[in-house]
């Protein structure tokens, strides 16, 4: 199996805080890989390095063999990488639909001039995007909130809207930062099912940061554990959960 994503000895510190101290691991093409660890382990920081929000001090991040460090941030979606944010990055005063459509930005051929003139090509593209957005909304059970302003829907639903927006990017690699946060038990199960289905349909590779251990253990084929910025375990879920280092790292933390 070829690696979709290779994290190689990534270091990043903020002043005195060493957020990442050189974790290295690979995510294979097509797998759902869990990235877990106690609070402050550096999971979100690693996502931010992959999506070019943070500039690591050293190390390498490769996507399908291509170095990501040095890429411009807004070009990441066109490489086929999409993410969600732990604390939501939605446009709160726009509708669900508008938020999801934003995900199509990198595929749009529109510019200011063609938009101002509403050329036939523009209108056609608009219809096409609308159609895709509606498919994704239906897929994620968001049809009812399609035209609702995002700030008026519950937090758990907003997380799903962010997932919808990430899917609208049409990614090959999907980075999810705590998608189950704020969801009820049955919603978590639904989410797991949908994620597996879209992975199969679209040949996605998923890197999943999640504190919901039930979801991680049942969904992931591969789990990487971070603690204090370093990788402490990497393997099959069953092996990882028995790993003494992991047990120690989690001891006393809220993970169930």
């Amino acid at each position: 199996m070829t690696a979709a994503l290779e994290i190689d000895d990534v270091h990043l510190s903020f002043g005195g805080v060493k957020a990442l101290t050189g974790p290295s691991f690979e995510v294979a093409e097509g797998e759902i890989c869990g990235l877990i660890g106690p609070n402050g382990a550096g999971k979100t920081t690693l996502f931010n390095c992959i999506t070019r929000i943070y500039e690591p001090d050293s190390g390498s991040v490769r996507y399908r063999g291509r170095e990501l460090l040095g890429q411009r941030r807004h070009l990441i979606p066109s490489l086929g990488i999409a993410r969600t944010f732990q604390n939501l990055g939605l446009l709160s005063d726009l509708s669900t639909l508008d938020n999801v459509l934003l995900g199509a930005t990198h595929r749009s051929r529109a510019n200011l001039l063609t938009s101002a003139l509403r050329t036939p090509g523009m209108r056609k593209e608009e219809r096409q995007m609308l159609c895709e957005a509606d498919e994704i909304l239906a897929r994620l059970g968001l049809g009812d909130v399609r035209d609702t302003i995002v700030s008026d829907v519950p937090f758990g639903t907003q997380k799903r809207i962010e997932l919808a927006r990430a899917l609208m990017i049409k990614p090959r690699l999907l980075l999810l930062d705590e998608p189950a946060n704020g969801l009820t038990h049955s919603e978590v199960d639904d989410l797991a099912t949908v994620l597996r289905e879209v992975r199969d349909e679209h040949d996605l590779t998923i890197l999943l940061v999640e504190h919901h251990m039930g979801m991680v253990m049942s969904m992931c084929e591969h789990v990487v554990v971070l603690d204090l910025g370093a990788k402490i375990a990497d393997g099959k879920p069953a092996d990882v959960s028995r790993d003494p280092a992991v047990v120690t790292a989690y001891l006393g933390s809220e993970a169930a």
């Binding site: 508008d98 459509l101 199509a104 930005t105 529109a110 101002a116 003139l117 509403r118 608009e126």
Partner: peptide
Amino acid sequence: NIVKSGVGRS
């Protein structure tokens, strides 16, 4: 047209 388009969304 600009405001209502994808560019407006951006």
